[in-house]
Design a protein around this nucleic acid. Structure first.
Lengths: 238, 238
DNA sequence: TTCTCAAGTTAGAGCTTCTAACCACAGATA
DNA sequence: TATCTGTGGTTAGAAGCTCTAACTTGAGAA
């Protein structure tokens, strides 16, 4: 019995991976059509020409499938952020922040149901598995290098103090920050990044949930104002 | 046949109202225990000593019950905001903004599942009925009078311009703003309020969804920093 | 006192997730 | 090459859900 077959995959394994991919693809389409609660394993199976229980050979529970889709979603978002960061790598920090914010929103409105899958509570009693937390950090990583170029003032100082405390407590965080932003104050980068995250999520999640319906502003305008305000407050070089 | 029986209620009507209240109460407890998707009409009925289909005499669909709970939730949030506003009615605007932000968060963390009920997508194909939009405005109302005391700068000017456009288009909005804040520039008040809303929701929704888990900051600190930053940016008198 | 009608019942359709038991064939092994 | 193992698929079915239909009962109204 060849052990894990991680590098050279057996035909069986390759077939299995392919079908898993098709299931995920079909599930994603269903979610895009009707949101996470509209995902029915039965319907997915039918769409693939299978019967319901067959899917349980590939995913033990419905939530396992959801979790995997969530991880993929995080990866996609992280890729979008990284691509945007690369695109403006040589621009001044202020501009880079605006670009990252716009990329975040662009990805979210392009697949709103997936965004709600990541940000919302998908399922009864669903508690985000630890692996999703790590993935989420990949999305925020590119922000560290940008916000680290600013500094905290006023009430943000208290936030930065808490970040310092956190950095002292768990060295892994410091490593993570350093890997994205080697030459900046980690606590400042963290405080700025968390703030940017909260602002982006605030604007975008209200938008994708349709809560701006019947209000007279564009979400893009609001997000841009929020990012510029953050750049101002942290004195990001233009 | 006495027509609507709105003032003097018949015994029948009173009984009906009472049972409806009990159903809502039991449903709310179930939601508090396991979130919106865990709400089962069957279980609620069983808890009240009834059988499942009996509830359909009181609520036509499961979503109708949810919608009513959402409306109640908005009302509760609005009441909390109004109470906080009254408590600091004589304080300077900056302090009032902080108090409103804290009240918003306090209400949300006190009943996180209800907050997710309002802010999230509760149900497959659930589209917020128009009445909930009006209710949502009640929550934001107290902010108008506070943010209206500031002014917009930088990128917020663009947001304010869109608000002016909106005010021109639909006079009802102007009336609404005037009812909460008679003596301020409505466009500024709207721009500031929407910004405050997005920031509060950003911080609080990440918190109640547990996304801060394993991060080294307190949500209260972040929210305070966000509100102070907004006060700074809009030049709110301290 | 009679009548009406709302509240609650049981039965059941149609959906869901998920388990159990079984079959058949592809791929690995002797 | 012949045999065996185990994976991928099936059907059957349990337990749950929402929601409809049809029936019964008893309280309020006439």
């Amino acid at each position: 019995m060849p052990d894990g077959s991680s590098s050279t995959s057996t035909p069986r394994q390759r077939y299995r991976d392919q079908v898993r991919g098709e299931i995920k693809q079909a599930a994603l389409e269903q979610i895009c059509a009707g949101g996470a609660p509209a995902l029915s394993l039965n319907a997915v199976a039918k769409g693939l020409g299978l019967t319901g229980p067959a899917l349980y050979k590939y995913f033990r529970k419905r939530d396992d499938l959801l979790t995997e889709l969530i991880c993929d979603g995080y990866d996609a978002a992280a890729a979008a952020m990284r691509a945007a960061a690369d695109r403006v790598a040589d621009a001044p920090p202020r501009e880079r922040l605006l670009a990252l914010g716009a990329a975040f929103r662009a990805w979210a409105v392009e697949s709103p149901h997936v965004y709600q899958l990541l940000a919302g509570t998908p399922s009864p009693g669903y508690h985000a598995p630890p692996e999703t937390v790590d993935r989420a950090r990949g999305v925020l990583g590119p922000l560290l290098g940008v916000l680290g170029r600013g500094d905290c003032r006023g009430a943000a100082l208290e936030l930065r103090a808490e970040m310092r405390f956190w950095l002292n407590d768990s060295p892994a965080v410091g490593e993570w920050v350093k890997s994205w932003a080697p030459d900046v104050d980690p606590a400042t980068a963290l405080a700025g990044t968390v703030t940017a995250w909260a602002r982006m999520h605030g604007v975008v999640s209200l938008e994708v949930q349709g809560l701006y319906e019947g209000m007279g502003h564009r979400a893009g305008t609001l997000l841009k104002a929020e990012m510029e305000a953050l750049a101002d407050a942290m004195g990001l070089p233009a």
